[in-house]
Design a binder for these strands. Structure first.
Lengths: 231, 231
DNA sequence: TCTTGTGGAATTGTTCAACAACCTTCTAGC
DNA sequence: GCTAGAAGGTTGTTGAACAATTCCACAAGA
């Protein structure tokens, strides 16, 4: 042991977290989260303990532990004695999510200078533009969310990053309402680029103003579509 | 039914949510959360499934569901095949929490004007001052956290309020390190009052500056004490 | 002395079966 | 058409069981 370079030991210690075999609950939670984000499980769908447990080959108890996590992430709602359902967002939810995004993302923009994390922001913009050229609108959506997550990560806070990631996952529930992902994400590609450029050139105040306008416009787009569907 | 005033029906409908009999998991989760916040369960304490389940009179499966929730709230850590432990915060955690508080609370300050929610802020300040006069430093701590939660609630976002509440609960884990609650909270009573006054008179920019200084100072106080304990 | 096996005790991870409580639906009766 | 009540299915919770894993102590070897 003493002959090993200390660096090597450090690497192993870091690997240990990745190495750890994941529990069944963890795998089930991840799987359900992915299916919900991908829209395979629509809003309002009832997740029967018996049916889903049978399909996944896990016990009811294990499934219930996974449900508790997903409910805390607001991806499903747990109604007492009635079961759990894939969450469905209303206009108030979307408005609330955008209020929260505004708080977190503007915080990121304001601490952009000297954060040394702008590379990820520019990479996300490039990924979105590349996906748009390929016509892969699902990838554009991913890149768009990745961009905003990178904006939040400018704060350097692990909690802000994690919470924003969850918030954006929740927002995907609303995306399912938009039948045309291109109409939802394409117009914002250019605005992402502009915000990234403003940040790269240290014009943070203007970047913040652009970001706030972006968020207001995106919210209005979704809320309008929701009211249209409802009426 | 038709003879009842509609207001009354609305009240009952609202009560129904509160009335709803809570599940065992919910009660266990609340109880453990309270005990952790109160410091009755110290950081690092191992929560044995069998022992705790026996003491509370609930089954291991029920307890495990509660653990999933608490782990998601970052109040306990779940180590695979080892068990769950009351979380212990390091200086990095405290720094991260204060970064997040800064993002959320400054957002609240910036949307204070015309929010119509300043009453709760002033009430929290008054509650803190009253508790200080009584020498009830635990109540001062509650009021302090209530003040900052009210600041976040100025955004009008339910999610920001809920997340900030969780964040402050997590921070109580660090308060346990401070043996003297008076030293931790008393100096900040005056600063809370000052921030509230600035907000009430619409001097939001100065309020924000004061708040940021407050948060930086509080973080330093806790981090310094932690390093002192560690070294 | 320090490290390396080894065995056993204790704990967690997961499943299964059971039952009470509850919700939903259908039916009978008015 | 409406209400009460019975029937069936689902969730809430428990207790037991077993495999997998960790922890601890102790012995064996360098």
């Amino acid at each position: 042991m003493d002959s090993s370079p200390p660096d090597l030991l450090g690497e192993f210690a870091a690997d240990r977290l990745l190495l750890g075999r994941s529990s069944t609950v963890r795998r089930v939670t991840d799987l359900l989260r992915d299916r919900i984000a991908a829209g395979a499980l629509r809003s309002g769908t009832r997740l029967s303990e018996e049916a889903l447990g049978g399909a996944l080959g896990v016990s009811r108890n294990t499934l219930r532990e996974a449900f508790r996590v997903l409910a805390h992430e607001r991806l499903v709602v747990h109604e007492m004695n009635r079961g759990v359902f894939v969450r469905s967002l209303g206009p108030e939810d979307v408005a609330d999510i955008y209020l929260t995004r505004r708080a977190l993302e503007t915080a990121g923009v304001r601490s952009a200078t000297g954060s040394g994390r702008l590379a990820a922001v520019n990479e996300a913009v490039a990924a979105g533009e590349s996906a748009a050229r390929d016509g892969d609108w699902a990838a554009v959506a991913d890149a768009d969310l990745g961009f905003h997550r990178a904006i939040g990560a400018l704060t350097g806070s692990e909690r802000i990053d994690a919470y924003l990631a969850g918030l954006l996952a929740e927002l995907r529930l609303a995306f399912a309402v938009m039948d045309d992902p291109r109409a939802l994400h394409e117009p914002f590609l250019r605005r992402n680029r502009r915000i990234a450029d403003l940040l790269t050139t240290d014009r943070t105040d203007r970047a913040e103003a652009e970001l706030v306008r972006y968020l207001d416009d995106a919210r209005e787009l979704i809320v309008a579509r929701m009211r249209q569907d409802a009426g």
